[in-house]
Each structure stands twice: as structure tokens, then as C-alpha cells.
Amino acid sequence: MTQERNTTEPGAETNARLTQTYRELAHERVPDHLDRAVLQAAAKAARPRYSRLRSWTRPMAWAATVMLSVALVLQISDVPGPESIIFDDAARKFEAQVPQPEARSDAPGESADAVVLEEAAATAPIRSLNDVSDAPRVVAPASPAAKQVIQEPLQEKRRRSELRQDSLDTKEPAAPATPADSFTLRDADMLRRADEMARTQSGENKEPALPSSRDRAGTLSATAMGFEAPACDETATKSPESWLECIAGLEEAGLHDEAQQQRQLLQETFPDFQPR
């Protein structure tokens, strides 16, 4: 090609010789290391889009994995363990039966209860710290030891309440038990009045210590069961009419034996009295 071009120019035959001599002179070839370098650069540059994509997707994937792992670990660490659940349970029961401070000061015999309750109160801050998070709380059954801690003061309290009621009771023996199913609100009201009358008879006006709602309910149910059958007091037995009303009340409460005894006493005391 070069020779063809040279033939069209002046001095073509001399230029042809020059060209031939130059061709014989210039025979150098590119070294292999240069070939490799250039071809590697070309091959590397031919896949830039994919490599650019991969260059940020891999670190991104690692970062996402680490972030998810950290989030998962933090989430797991926020869930309360079984110990804190036991403490939660104890603290909840403690709150339900915590007495008023002045009432406790009136009942010096309950120092053992106070110790147990103070122990339960000591666990209360743990629960409040755990309650800060909104994580759903897993409610697990309390261990036997925890149940014992909770049940002991309750049983002790119930026992003392029964003893107190026994001391308030009249000389008559307890009436036989009646079915609790027949107990109504009206009955409860009447029993409460009978209880007050009996307390007035014995001259004791002091309120029972720690009158929690649970204890009161236990007392009412015990009354309904006939463990503390109220007798007609002096006020009621002053006149035959009031005595009769009291007996009617006993009968309505289902205490038929007691009513029968009172009726006999009424007839003995007022033999001339004829009920209408």
C-alpha cells in the first residue's frame, strides 16, 4: 500500500528503495510483557458495569447481615427470662394483697407476713425495669418455691382470721354446713348484721386487722357455711317480737337448727307469748 502511494509521488523509484530499506530496518516487535499488560487492561475494562455493580452489592450485603444480626440479638436480650417472670408473678400477687401501713402497725402479730411481703417488694423494681420495653411478656408457670412464698402468707392469714372469728363466736357450737350454692346477697347482708350483733354482744368493736377484700369474702363464705352461726343477742331477746324477727332471720338464712333452738328459748322465756 505504501509502495503504491510512493509510486504516484516524485522520485518514486528512489522512495521505493528507501521504503524497502526502512522495512528491512524496522522489524521490531512488541515485547510479550507489553502484550499481556495491554490485553489484561482491555479485558478488565470490558466488564466494568458488572464489576461496578458487584463492588457495592457485596459490602451492602455484609452490612445488612450484620445489622440484622445485631437487631436480632438486641430483640432476644429484651425478652424477660424465667427468673424475672417469677419475680413478676410474686410482685403482682404482692400488689394484690399489700396492706395499708397503718393497719399493719395495728397488727403486731403479723411480723412474719411483713418479712415475706418485704421480700416480695424487693423484687418489684426488677419487674418495673423489665416493663419499660414493649416486648410481649411470656407468662410461665411459677416454680414450687415461688408458689410457696406466695401461698404461705395467705394460708397463715386465713388461719388467723378463722381463729379470730372463733374467738368472736358465741358459746353455741357451730351449725352444720349448708350448701354454698344457696348463698345470696340478701343472705350475706343478713349474716353481716348478725355478725355485728354478735360482736356487740361480746363487746368487741375492733375491726379485724387487714380487712382485705379477699379475707372479707372468705369470712362471708365461712359464715354462709355455718362455721360461725350467729345467735340472737340481748337486744333482740329483750322483746318477743324482736326475738321472733331474729329467728325469722335465722330461718331465712337456712340456719333452721339455730332457729329452732332460739324458738325454744323464746317459748321458755316468754311462755305467754303467742306468735301471730
Binding site: A26, E28, V30, D35, L39, A42, A43, A46, R47
Partner: peptide, 25 residues
């Protein structure tokens, strides 16, 4: 080669590499 064909570049390089090398040398 612009569209990713490396073999096309190799052909192109083979055609011109020696002449360019001698020119620069």
C-alpha cells in the same frame, strides 16, 4: 469492543501493535 467483545479488541491490537511500537520506538 465497546459492547464488551474483548476478542474484537485483540484483533484490533494485533493489527496495529507492531507498527505503533516501531513508530514510538
Amino acid at each position: 469492543y465497546r459492547d464488551g467483545d474483548v476478542a474484537a479488541f485483540e484483533t484490533l491490537y494485533e493489527r496495529h501493535k507492531d507498527a505503533l511500537y516501531r513508530y514510538l520506538l
